[in-house]
Amino acid sequence: MFQHDKFDNYTFEDVPLNQDLYLVDECYLHEYEKAMLAFFNGEEDKKVGYVSAIAARKVNENSIELSLYANIYDRFHVVSIALPRDQFVVCVGCWQCDEKPRIFVKSTWLENIYLRSYSIFALIDADNFKRALECGKITRDKLVRLRSEIDFVAAKHPDISFISFADSLLLKSNWSIGYFKKSVKCNYEPEVFIALAEEIDAIYQTTLGVHTHAVITQGSNEYYDDSLLHISPSANHISLNSLGVPFAQLMEIEEAAKRASKAGEHPRAELYMDGQYYHSLKYKHEFDKNSGACYEYHSKMVGTPCKYYYATINNILSNLDGA
C-alpha cells in the first residue's frame, strides 16, 4: 500500500515528532489510499473517515508517547497517551499536497481511547502541620470537626472521591473525552477542583488554624473501567483505583515544588497545577495564561520535560470564564 511516489511513508521509529498529526482508525486505510490516488490524478479532494488531532512526543522501544488534543474548541485540553507498537498499523502523509501524516491504528485500541475513563487528581496538603502538632494546637476534637466538615463537602460532590489523612486530602474524579459513535458525552469539568481547593483551605483554617496548598493533575488512568474507589467486601481494604501519569505527577510536583521553594527558585504557592491541567481550564478571553509563573520538572513516566504552574487560588478563580 501507499506505493505512489507522492506518499511519504514513516516507520514506527520514524514517526515525525512535535508536529501536527492525525490519529485514524485502520478501517479507513484502503478508502484513504484510494481517495488520495484519485486526487493525484486530478480528481476532487475527498475527505475520508474521522481523524483525531495528535502530536508525537517521543518514540520508545515499545510505544510512542502522544499528545491527544481532546478539546481545542472551547478549552485547550491535551491528554498524554501511549500508542503501543502492536497497535500501530502505518504512518503516511504527503507533504507535496500539504497532507499531514496520519497514524493508522487498530480499531479496538482507538475506540478504547474514547470510551475509557480518565481522571483528575488533587493532593491537598496542610502547611506547617508538624509545627502546629508540636505546639499542641492539633487536638482530637479539632480533627473530628475537620472530618465532619470534609464529610459535608464530599456529600455535595458524589462524583468525586475524598480520601483524608488529617494533614492531607486526596481527591479524584473520573471523566470521559466523549465519543459520538456511542453517544458518550464529554464531562470534563476541571474548574470545580479550584473551587474545592479554596473551600477546603477555609475549612483547615477554621478547624486547625493552618493553610493548605493543592497539587492538581489530570489524564490517563490505567483503572479506566473501574469505580472511583474499591472497598473490599470485608470493608478493611480500600483501593484508590489509580495508576498512571497524572497520579505519579502528584508526588513529583509536590517534591519538585518543595525543593524549588526551599532553594529560593520560586515562592511557595496555594496552587501547583500540571501544565496540561492548567491550560485546560476555561479562562476569560483577556487572561494571558501563557504568562503564568511556571517551573520545569521531570516525571519518570513521561519521556519529555514537564511544567507545573503555580499561583494563588484567587488569581485562578478570578480569571476563570464566568467568574
Rank of each mutant, 00 (worst) to 15 (best):
D5K: 10
N9C: 12
T11P: 04
E13W: 04
N18A: 11
L21E: 00
E26F: 04
Y32M: 07
L37R: 06
A38M: 10
K46C: 11
V48M: 01
S52K: 07
I54A: 01
K58G: 05
V59R: 06
N62F: 04
N62E: 09
S63E: 07
I64W: 02
S67R: 06
N71C: 07
H77I: 07
S80H: 12
V90G: 02
C94L: 03
Q96V: 09
D98H: 11
E99T: 14
R102H: 07
F104M: 11
K106T: 08
S107P: 05
S107F: 06
W109T: 02
L110A: 03
L115C: 13
S117W: 15
A122K: 04
D125P: 03
F129R: 04
L133I: 09
G136P: 02
G136C: 03
K137E: 07
T139I: 06
R140A: 14
L143R: 15
L143W: 12
V144F: 11
R147C: 13
I150C: 07
I150D: 05
K156V: 13
S161C: 05
F162L: 02
I163D: 04
F165G: 14
A166Q: 06
D167G: 00
D167N: 01
S168V: 07
S168M: 08
L169S: 00
L169I: 01
L171P: 00
L171R: 00
L171F: 01
K181D: 13
K181I: 13
S183A: 13
N187H: 00
I194W: 03
L196V: 02
E199V: 09
I200K: 03
Q205H: 14
T206E: 15
T206I: 14
T207V: 13
G209I: 11
T212L: 06
H213W: 04
Q218Y: 05
S220G: 13
N221D: 06
Y223N: 02
Y224G: 14
D225P: 08
S227Y: 07
S227G: 11
L228Y: 00
H230E: 12
S232D: 08
S232I: 08
S234G: 07
A235M: 15
H237R: 15
I238N: 10
L240T: 10
F247C: 11
L250K: 00
G264E: 06
H266A: 06
L271P: 00
Y272M: 05
M273T: 09
Q276F: 15
Y278M: 12
K282V: 07
Y283G: 03
K284G: 09
H285F: 15
N290S: 11
G292M: 07
A293K: 08
Y297D: 05
M301A: 14
C306H: 04
A311V: 05
T312H: 02
I316L: 02
D321H: 10
